Simulated scan of single mutants.
Amino acid sequence: MEGDFIKINKSLLPLSWLYGLGVGVRNELFELGVLKSRSFDVPVISVGNITVGGSGKTPHVEYLINLLKDCTQVAVLSRGYKRKSRGYVLAEKDTPMREIGDEPFQMKHKFPNIHVAVDKNRCEGIDRLTQDEETKNTDVVLLDDAFQHRYVKPGINILLVDYHRLIIYDKLLPAGRLREPLSGKNRADIVIVTKCPKELTPIEYRVLSKSMNLFPFQELFFTTLEYCDLIPVFDGEAMEEKIVLNDIRHRNILLLTGIALPKQLEVDLQPYTGDRTPEILAFPDHHSFKKNDVALINSTFAQMAEPKIIITTEKDRARLIGLEGLDENVRKNIYALPIKVKFMLDKGEKFNEKILSYVRKNSRNSILAKAKNDNKPKDGNNSGNRPRTISFRNN
Rank of each mutant, 00 (worst) to 15 (best):
Q218W: 03
C196H: 08
E240A: 11
E226F: 02
L178V: 05
L245H: 05
P174F: 04
F221E: 10
I192N: 03
L214K: 13
R187K: 11
P197E: 08
L230N: 06
K195H: 10
L178N: 09
I167H: 06
I192V: 14
L225A: 07
F222Q: 06
L166W: 00
L220T: 06
D189M: 04
P197I: 08
D235F: 03
I243R: 13
T224E: 12
E240K: 15
Y169F: 13
I190V: 14
G236D: 04
I190Q: 05
L200E: 07
P216E: 14
M212R: 13
P216N: 13
L178M: 15
R187F: 00
I231Q: 10
P202Q: 03
K198H: 11
F222N: 07
L166Q: 04
L173P: 09
K171W: 10
D235Q: 14
I231A: 04
L230H: 06
I168K: 15
L173G: 11
C228N: 12
I203S: 15
T223I: 02
T224I: 00
E226C: 07
S211T: 14
D189W: 02
S211G: 05
I243N: 11
D247A: 12
T223G: 09
F234M: 03
K198F: 03
I168Q: 15
N186T: 08
I192R: 06
L172E: 08
I192E: 04
E199D: 15
M239E: 11
T201Q: 13
E226V: 09
I248L: 07
R179Y: 01
D235V: 10
P181Q: 09
Y205M: 10
R206Q: 15
M239W: 00
G236Y: 01
T194Y: 01
E241H: 12
E241T: 15
E180I: 02
L230C: 04
H164P: 00
L208I: 14
Y163C: 02
D170H: 08
T224W: 00
E219T: 14
S211Q: 15
S211M: 15
G176N: 08
I203F: 11
D247H: 13
Y205T: 12
E199R: 10
I192H: 02
L182H: 05
M212G: 10
V161Q: 05
I248F: 04
L214V: 11
L245I: 06
K210F: 13
C228F: 00
Y205S: 12
L173T: 13
K171F: 11
L220D: 06
R187H: 02
A238E: 04
G176L: 08
V207N: 15
K242E: 13
E241R: 14
V244M: 12
D229L: 00
G176R: 09
Q218T: 11
P181F: 06
E237I: 10
T223K: 06
G184Q: 03
